[in-house]
Design a protein around this nucleic acid. Sequence first.
DNA 1: CTCATGACAATGA
DNA 2: CTCATTGCCATGA
Length: 110
Amino acid sequence: MQPFTERVIGIIRSIPEGKVMTYGQVAAHAGSPRAARQVVRILHAMSAAHKLPWHRVVNARGEIAIRDGDSRTQQMLYLSGEGVEVGDEGAVDLSRYGYVPGEPEPAEFF
DNA sequence: CTCATGACAATGA
DNA sequence: CTCATTGCCATGA
């Protein structure tokens, strides 16, 4: 199987609850920092088959990438249900919920 | 090989 | 804000 797809799938599967990753990060960890589009494709194509938490994958700004459709609302609901604060525009705080593989949880902020 | 497709990213108007 | 453009790259026909 293509390392790319599997890699991406594995990475996405490893995203813990209450955390989100950007397409660029996933692509970078998969081996191609500029392959954010492929991440998108893979997600769309394999999310159902592989039960991927696609809702934990957002665009570079930490916002929901979907422009329109039920999926957008679903993603917001999923995230909020996992403890992620989602804004009205589907924006999350990457500095708080951004998942960085290998990095431990940051200490208390205050 | 080419061509088309993307739930993107960055930039510019 | 939206829209257009360009860059980017894997995947499938």
